[in-house]
Amino acid sequence: MPPIKILLGHLICFLMSLLLAGCSRSNTSEPGPRRADKTPVSPLALRSTAHLKRLLAPGMKTNEILAKLGKPITVFDAGQWAEQWEYPVTPFPADDGMRDAYVISASVFITNGCFANVGYAYAPRQHERSLSAREKIIVTNATVDGGQQYSGQQTPPLRLFTVSSNTIPGGRMIDTDRLPNLGYIPAAPFLEVPVVDQVRLVERLVAEEGGRTHTNWEFTISLPAAYWALLEATTTSNVFNQLLVTVGNEPVFAGRINEPFQNGNFEKTFNEASQVEGVKRELARLQRRK
């Protein structure tokens, strides 16, 4: 039987959709869930239960919501009442009335093609603790003039692109073993860095509730100070867009930009050991050689 807090969360979402019945839609389709499409959906990284509502202005059109959040994982057609768009959420501790629970998904309520409200589903908090952590510095570069000039062997640049599901004139399709059928990127990145300051890998063994354990591998890429403001500005304008990171022309990893990258750092976490070695090998190419 599902945990009572999950049931309560869905009940709250259902009651909210009833309250929106006054803003009816004109279609006559039968109520029920339908998957938006078969494209993998990255979870939203929200900082609080109020965060999503701040991102979505009252009356925002559906195309604007899609531009902000991407496609939902499921759409519930409520017939004459409304549509309910479901998004997975990277779990975070609930900061509303559902204490000692995690927020696990978000519902965006649409009436007459416009944003109306949000709701959340919850799960009991599972207490985790880090049992051990091993850190390895993969790249460390002494930069000169903010990384613009340096001596020694030239390294391939680090490049950041936005990814689109639509064809981009002059762009190219990314479809590799590591990133199958990812999407299209433009000819030029939104940020290119000739030399990074550091790449760090932390392997962390985590204990879950019930005695289970799992391992996470977290890469952190640090840029020279000269690029901090530009990194934050460009990622701010691309929040919730899909990001591709390449070393030279080689695609390395991708993910959603859930919030601006600050202080010149950004991270990527993997849960599968099979994914780690290839990424580590490509990022190691950013190391300068004398």
Rank of each mutant, 00 (worst) to 15 (best):
A225P: 06
A226W: 00
A226V: 04
E203N: 08
T234M: 08
I221W: 02
Y227V: 02
G211Q: 06
R204N: 05
G210I: 01
I221A: 04
A207N: 00
L231C: 09
E208L: 13
L205R: 10
V202Q: 10
E218P: 01
W228V: 14
V193N: 05
E232D: 10
S222N: 14
N216W: 10
A229Q: 15
Q198C: 10
Q198A: 14
A187M: 07
H214D: 09
P189I: 05
N216L: 14
T215K: 11
Q198H: 09
R204H: 02
V193H: 03
P194L: 05
L231M: 11
D197Y: 08
G210N: 11
P189K: 07
R212S: 12
V199W: 00
V195S: 05
A187E: 13
L230S: 12
V206C: 01
F190S: 01
I221R: 03
T234K: 10
F219L: 05
L231R: 02
P194E: 07
I221C: 10
P224F: 03
F190I: 03
Q198K: 14
T220F: 04
P189C: 05
V206T: 15
D197N: 15
L205Y: 01
N216P: 04
A207C: 02
V195E: 06
H214P: 00
Y227A: 12
P189H: 04
E208P: 02
P189L: 06
N216E: 09
P224Q: 09
F219N: 01
L223M: 09
A207F: 02
W228S: 12
P224M: 02
E208W: 08
L201S: 00
R212Q: 15
T220L: 09
R212M: 09
V196D: 03
N216D: 11
W228H: 13
A229P: 07
V202E: 07
V193Y: 01
A225D: 13
R212C: 06
T220C: 06
V206D: 03
V196F: 03
W228F: 12
R200E: 15
E203S: 14
E232I: 07
E208H: 15
E208M: 13
A225H: 14
G210E: 08
L231H: 00
L191V: 03
V193M: 08
E209S: 14
N216I: 11
T220W: 01
A188P: 01
N216T: 15
E203Q: 12
G210A: 09
L201R: 00
S222T: 12
P194T: 07
V199H: 03
G211F: 03
T220S: 12
T213K: 07
A188I: 09
R200D: 14
A233K: 12
S222I: 11
F219T: 00
Q198T: 10
E192F: 05
T213A: 06
G210R: 09
A207G: 03
L205G: 04
